[in-house]
Design a protein around this nucleic acid. Structure first.
Length: 908
RNA sequence: GGGCGCUUAGCUCAGUUGGUUAGAGCGUCUGGUUUACACCCAGAAGGUCAUAGGUUCGACUCCUAUAGCGCCCACCA
């Protein structure tokens, strides 16, 4: 059959067209279908801030593999895509851009409405770019159901969820130490803090009866409490007592309390508490009911109310002056000049963070409010139970430990953020007319303004302004993870009780990088179980997903994290796709990577898999060149099996199907991919196609195996397989084809060994060269390996002759066959196959000896075990049965080994 | 400081409940174009599985310790 196909696959030429075909065919859009089982993956929504990186590519590749395989396997396979508004990240990017354009303070200059509009524009553009990139990867996600975390229905879900929690008393407003950046006048999330090592001075001051150490004397104005460890002998006598002492601005009174959090070995073992400007101190003060007084204002200066002398001074200046003052008073004990200290800074500005106390919204994780398996449990407890009771399993398993560890240390979740890009908190405050006017005058009002205005009147939940005058909505927005925690169920229509929600939820797999296990994965479990349980669903239906599959991070060839700031090592997935094709990129990201482990990626790796793609292309090309139209149209039947080679490749194929199914069930995609790769390249192309060149040519099997190979490979490399499927004359798209089913009747185990011999002989034939020097008349001998047994086949002249009759062995010169040369060739083959070329008897004997020894000792132990009456009485029956069976098997194996040894010895 | 992980061929990595001779790709070397593919084919070299103990008939695999590397969390008053 003559089909014009180029000898190298050009991905660029086909990929976009194929994607379009899939999308238009509706293959991506599954329907609620009671006759089918659902299979769902919610795509982790990429941030709508920029471009996709390789991390996204891994995610897309892995999820697409799962989705495609299930789709072919007859599931209603839904992959729901979307994007995240990525609150802080997006607003930051846009503000930065605006600043580049010369705007000094975008929030002040534009005001809320206009800035949000700017950000929205930017996000929309990003979304388009992301959609395009996702398509380029070949992701078969359902675009008709695409969602965005700021969509109206998502906002509705967010508000409903907030309302649930507000009504249940799970959301409360409380003081909290936040990371305040006085430069940028904003709070900074914990994970946006960068610790910088700095050498500063460390001061020791006499503070009444104790010496305290500090690197920040300027915060120590109002310290009135000394804390020591309860077991510290040095301070045993002063605990609980009150002292009058000389301090920065005259005499003050201070008392001594004890707390176990104090490290006796650190410094002097005594410290004073500054509740308003240190997290630890703040928590201590809450624990002991101490007063919290602000010392440093939001501009980073000493508050005027605190000190007449130092009020209004920036902290650096105040620090120096205060030390001078204390020194004059003789209170400086010593100064350590070389104190190495971690300073927290905002990684976006470079501003030094000043911890401040501010009112924030929190989710209470300890209130026992969820009806769970007959008990009232807290959020924390439900989070633990879902994983502990195996409702949710995490791959790799070790991350379950990490997960529990995180929950054990979980504190109330602060959900309010002082930015505008996001879901505004649906809370309204009743204020005075004066406050109302003052608030509206400030264009960049955040919750800081509320704090400063001292708002503390009536508070109401609502998405709309309550009736009456002077209501202000909380200007803050919700943490971006608050909305994305609803992702799995809100994208399916929640809070409406839709058919889809019922059918596709809980989703099956949540596949993402391990770096957001806490940020996102745990919070999704939190949101889903709480909200759906409150809706009255059964516990097992409230989890967001059954399996969490965590992939590793992609690193460059030196093991460094890829970052945009380092373009030398940073690989853009689109560049790789352009150069090598999406299929090659997908394979290079999936094969050889294991869950939870980071992997390195570099161009040569992608190039290697491109070679494989080309191999399939050419293997198929060869097949097409060797079959005719009727062959293509014929259905495969068992009666078409002709040779040992047929049986051999069919057996291999069936074994492959079985193993790949097992691997998929265990989420071992790398293994599955490797096996398919090996089969296609190592078995089908290298052996079966070679054999097909000769008398074993059998189009029926050739095509049957090829078609099944393409099916198996399709989830991994969808584009090239789809194209080849079309070239094979198939009318239906491969994306919708039926996944291969394991068929035991196509397994011919006993055939394996002889066929293996044929392979070895082919190898030899290929490598035979004129310089062969073998004594004539030598007996032909061959050892053939296969599976668990080693067989020696003597005098397999017949098999070899059969090979020698292969047409491919015709020796030609200028297109003319030369029978004499062929005859000579055959003669040489016969001479070339003495045993020693296939196996070294010395080595083989040694190996067998070792093996026999091992087996014997094992058998001995087993016999002893099974001869022990006590053991027989106490051990489980099942175990004993197994062991008896094993003993029998091992004895048989030993016999075989001994036989083998004898025959090897006889060949010497 | 607390937790987790990694260490297997020159490089990048697989290795499933412990069980045949520890594998692959790239790279290196040798040889090869007889009707798919040089993005190819055949073959070779290359490993005391980080180190030291232990458990076991048997350990890359389980346990303990040590070293080096990495990650996460907390944070130094």
């Amino acid at each position: 059959m003559s089909i014009e196909i180029e000898s190298a696959y050009e991905a660029k030429k086909y990929e976009d067209k194929i994607y379009k075909k899939w999308e238009e065919s509706g293959a991506f859009t599954p329907k609620v279908n009671k006759d089918k089982e659902p299979y769902t993956i919610s795509m982790p929504p990429p941030n709508a801030t920029g471009v996709l990186h390789l991390g996204h590519s891994v995610m897309l590749a892995l999820e697409d593999i799962m989705i495609r395989q299930k789709r072919m396997d007859g599931f209603s396979s839904l992959w729901l895509p979307g994007t995240d508004h990525a609150a802080i990240a997006t607003q930051n990017v846009v503000e930065k851009e605006l600043r580049k354009k010369g705007m000094k303070n975008p929030r002040k200059e534009l005001g809320r409405e206009k800035l949000i509009a700017e950000i929205r524009d930017f996000a929309e553009k990003s979304k388009d770019r992301i959609r395009n990139q996702v398509r380029k990867m070949g992701a078969s996600c359902d675009w008709t159901r695409e969602k965005y975390t700021l969509d109206d229905n998502m906002n509705h879900a967010v508000n409903t969820f907030f309302k649930y929690m507000y009504e249940d008393g799970l959301i409360y407003k409380g003081g909290r130490i936040v990371n305040w950046d006085p430069n940028m006048q904003t709070t900074v999330a914990d994970d946006e803090i960068e610790y910088k090592e700095e050498t500063t001075k460390f001061y020791y001051f006499q503070y009444g009866p104790v010496v305290i150490g500090t690197s920040r004397p300027e915060t120590k104005f109002l310290d009135k409490v000394i804390v020591v460890h309860p077991k510290d002998k040095r301070y045993k006598d002063i605990i609980g007592k009150e002292f009058e002492l000389e301090w920065i601005e005259g005499k003050i009174k201070a008392k001594v309390i004890a707390d176990e959090c104090i490290d006796m070995k650190l410094g002097t073992g005594a410290m004073t508490i500054t509740p308003a400007h240190s997290l630890v101190d703040f928590e201590l003060s809450q624990k002991h009911g101490l007063e919290v007084e602000q010392i440093i204002d939001f501009d980073g200066k000493i508050r005027k109310e605190v000190s007449k002398e130092f009020g209004g001074m920036p902290i650096e200046e105040a620090r120096q002056k205060i030390v001078e003052t204390l020194d004059k008073k003789g209170l400086v004990v010593k100064i350590d000049e070389e104190y190495i200290h971690n300073v927290s800074t905002n990684y976006r500005g470079k501003g030094v963070i000043e911890p401040q106390v501010m009112k924030q919204w929190f989710i209470d994780v300890n209130k026992k409010i969820i009806d769970w398996k007959g008990k009232k449990l807290s959020i924390k407890e439900v989070l633990q139970d879902t994983v502990r009771s195996k409702m949710i399993s995490i791959i790799p398993k070790r991350f379950e430990k990490t997960y529990f560890h995180w929950i054990d240390n979980l504190r109330d979740w602060c959900i309010s953020r002082q930015i505008w890009w996001g879901h505004q908190i649906p809370i309204w405050y009743k204020v005075t007319e004066e406050q109302y006017k003052a608030f509206n005058r400030k264009k960049d009002a955040s919750s800081l303004a509320l704090t400063i205005l001292g708002v503390d009147g009536e508070t109401k939940f609502g998405t709309e302004k309550p009736e009456g005058d002077y209501w202000i909505q909380d200007p803050d927005t919700l943490d971006t993870w608050f909305s994305s925690s609803l992702w799995t169920f809100a994208t399916l229509g929640w809070p409406e009780k839709t058919e889809e929600l019922k059918y596709y939820h809980p989703t099956d797999v949540l596949e993402t990088g391990y770096d957001i296990l806490f940020f996102w994965v745990a919070r999704m479990i939190l949101a889903s179980t709480y909200a759906l349980r409150r809706d009255g669903l059964a516990e097992e239906d409230t989890i967001p997903f059954k399996t969490v599959y965590l992939h590793g991070l992609i690193r460059d060839r030196n093991g460094k994290k890829m970052s945009k700031t380092n373009p030398e090592t940073c690989i853009d997935p689109l560049d790789m796709i352009k150069e090598y094709g999406a299929d090659a990129l997908r394979l290079s990201l999936v094969i050889g990577s294991t869950p939870g482990n980071d992997m390195r990626l570099f161009e040569e790796k992608v190039a290697g898999y491109r070679n494989f793609i080309n191999k399939i292309w050419n293997g198929s090309r060869f097949a097409l060149m060797n079959v005719n139209k009727e062959d293509l149209e014929k259905e495969f039947e068992k009666g078409m099996i002709k040779s040992h080679a047929d049986k051999w490749i069919l057996t291999k194929l069936q074994n492959l199907i079985k193993e790949v199914d097992e691997d998929f069930a265990k989420h071992r995609f790398s293994d599955a991919g490797t096996k398919i790769y090996d089969f296609i390249w190592g078995q089908y192309c290298d052996w079966y196609l070679e054999i097909s060149k000769g008398i074993h040519k059998n189009p029926a099997v050739l095509l049957f195996v090829l078609r099944n190979s393409l099916k198996l490979l399709h989830p991994f490399t969808p584009f090239v397989t789809e194209k080849l499927w079309e070239l094979l004359g198939e009318k239906e798209l491969l994306i919708n084809a039926q996944w291969p089913k394991y068929d035991k009747s196509l397994v011919f185990e006993e055939e394996e060994y002889e066929t293996k011999l044929i392979q070895q002989v082919i190898t030899k034939i290929r490598s035979i060269r004129a310089e062969l020097k073998v004594e004539a008349g030598k007996k032909i001998h061959a050892i053939v390996y296969g599976g668990k047994y080693t067989k020696i086949l003597e005098d397999k002249r017949e098999a070899i002759m059969r090979l020698a009759r292969l047409e491919s062995l015709d020796i030609t010169e200028k297109g003319k066959k030369i029978p004499a040369a062929k005859a000579a060739f055959i003669e040489k083959i016969e001479l070339y196959l003495p045993l020693k070329d296939l196996i070294d008897p010395e080595k083989e004997t040694k190996r067998l000896d070792k093996e026999i020894e091992k087996k014997s000792s094992f058998i001995k132990t087993l016999e002893a075990k099974l001869g022990n009456e006590g053991y027989l009485k106490n051990a489980p029956k099942e175990l004993i049965k197994n062991e008896k069976l094993r003993l029998k098997q091992e004895k048989e194996n030993l016999e075989k080994l001994t036989e083998q040894k004898t025959s090897v010895l006889s060949t010497k």
